[in-house]
Structure formats: C-alpha cells, structure tokens
Computed example of a mutant assay.
Amino acid sequence: MSVAPVGGRGATAPSVGDGVRAVLFDMDGTLVETEEYWGEAMFELAASLGGQMSPEARAATVGTSMRRAMQVLHADLGVHRTEAQLLADAGWIEDRVAVLMSGGGIPWRPGARELLAAVREAGPATALVTTTPRRLAALVLASITADLGADPFDVTVCGDEVPARKPDPAPYLQAAAALGVDPAGCVVIEDSLVGVTAGLAAGMAVLGVPALQPVPPTPGLTLRGTLVGVGPAELDEVLAAGPARAVPGR
C-alpha cells in the first residue's frame, strides 16, 4: 500500500465535497490506453491458432478475467482447447502484453491524468482496482508513478489478489475495506460492463466511460464519453446520483 503524497495531499482523507470519501479507479481502458495491448496479443494468438478474432468477440473480452477471455476467443474461432492449453494460451497472452507494455511510456486515456491529479489534490483516498494480475499492473503503476512523480494510489487491488473477480463486487469491497471507507462514500470509475456491474453490486456510485463496448444506462450509473472535464465537482454529482443516495421516483 502506498501513501506517498501527490500535489499537496494532506495526512487525512477528507471528502471531495459533501460525501466522496474515496475514488476507486479501474486501470485498463479507464486510466490508461492498455486495452490495445490486450487486443494485439489476442489477435496474434488467434492467428497462431489458424483463425481471426472478430471485433465482437474482442469487445466481449474487455474487463473480463483471462479465463473468460480465452473461452470467448476459442468459441469465436470454433476451436477446442484442453484446460492445459487454455492456461497456456492465457499465459502466452500475459507474457506478450508484458513485452508490449515494456516498450515505452503507457499513454493515458483522455482526461485521466488530470482527474487523478485533481482527486489527489482534493484529498480523498484513492485505489486502483484492476482485473489485471500484479506483475502486469506493476508495469502500468511504474509508468504512472514516473509521470506523476509519486504513486497516486493508497491501495492497489489486482486480479490475482481477490477471492472473486469483476463482475463480482469483491474487488471493490476489498479496496474499500483496505481504505477503511464505507462503500456508500465511494465513487468507482470504470469503462467496462463487468466493472460497472461490480461497482454497483458493491453499493458504490459509478462513473462509466465506455470505449470498446457499450454500457447500458443503469440506476446508480453516470455515463460520460470521456474523463475530459471531469473533476471533484463532477464526482460529487456522480455520488449524489449513486445507489446509496438515489431518490425513489426520480
């Protein structure tokens, strides 16, 4: 767990406005442009298996576990793989993504860097909650930390450190518990349907910024095209619209 200050963050974690105690960020496709690495690796694996992954199948893998992603890929190609082969394919994908991520600075999603810096300046607790395993998340964290000058997250929860992965609420509940924050005071920022589902199931307000797959309107969810222009005031509005504060009939 990192407690390194960024941009004047104090010793305590006050709310952004009237109640935001913590902001929990997804990683791939939300904060950084890493989904393209996963896509490139899966397209390469599909070619090695003698096929071509469809755009629809690729979109269906966004935010999912590696096991689920491999099941989608194999079904899309119409190939049968044993359990050992599935695990080998998943390992190949992770190794290939590690190589791609190591090729240089990892680009931010539009508005993400500015929002993360503004949240740290405002003072609430922050967490990174990702389905990506620790060994790959560490590469992204190193890039983010190098850019910002310090690790901006109080807590980091990775996909290989939780009892169940998104869309289960376990990762977000684990992060909130580690921060010592009530889920009702948390805002989750996600790009995928499984991530949005996990955040809402955890009883948190969710800001959705879908990119590669559509996310339908849902009570407690605020949708935006990008994070450009999103700051502390907008996160207050997301929390107010969240499930813990929803007003019946509105």
Rank of each mutant, 00 (worst) to 15 (best):
179 L>G: 10
104 G>A: 15
101 M>V: 00
110 P>C: 11
189 I>H: 05
114 E>S: 04
114 E>V: 07
147 D>Q: 12
93 I>R: 15
153 F>D: 03
153 F>E: 02
193 L>H: 06
95 D>A: 15
173 L>G: 08
101 M>L: 15
178 A>N: 01
114 E>I: 11
186 C>L: 12
199 G>W: 11
130 T>P: 01
157 V>A: 02
111 G>T: 05
135 R>Y: 08
181 V>G: 01
134 R>V: 09
165 R>E: 13
203 G>I: 06
138 A>C: 05
171 P>C: 05
132 T>Q: 03
152 P>D: 03
205 A>I: 08
92 W>T: 12
199 G>R: 09
188 V>R: 06
94 E>T: 13
182 D>C: 00
197 T>M: 10
146 A>R: 15
129 V>T: 09
103 G>R: 15
150 A>H: 14
117 A>E: 14
195 G>E: 09
162 V>L: 02
125 A>K: 06
92 W>S: 12
141 L>P: 00
175 A>N: 10
187 V>I: 11
146 A>W: 06
108 W>M: 05
113 R>E: 08
115 L>V: 10
155 V>W: 01
184 A>L: 02
106 I>C: 01
199 G>N: 05
180 G>S: 01
183 P>W: 08
169 P>V: 00
164 A>F: 04
160 D>I: 07
174 Q>H: 08
203 G>T: 12
92 W>G: 01
209 V>L: 05
114 E>C: 04
163 P>Y: 09
183 P>Q: 09
145 T>S: 08
190 E>V: 11
212 L>F: 09
118 A>G: 09
202 A>H: 09
163 P>F: 02
132 T>R: 08
142 A>W: 04
170 A>F: 04
157 V>I: 15
92 W>E: 14
106 I>R: 09
93 I>P: 03
200 L>I: 14
120 R>K: 10
176 A>V: 11
147 D>V: 00
136 L>M: 13
131 T>M: 10
102 S>Y: 04
121 E>L: 09
103 G>N: 13
195 G>I: 11
179 L>M: 08
182 D>V: 08
169 P>T: 07
123 G>V: 04
201 A>S: 15
203 G>H: 11
204 M>S: 06
181 V>S: 07
175 A>W: 07
135 R>H: 15
163 P>A: 11
173 L>C: 05
107 P>Y: 06
138 A>E: 15
150 A>D: 15
169 P>R: 12
123 G>I: 12
184 A>M: 04
196 V>T: 13
143 S>V: 02
163 P>V: 09
189 I>Q: 04
103 G>Y: 06
110 P>L: 04
113 R>H: 01
138 A>S: 14
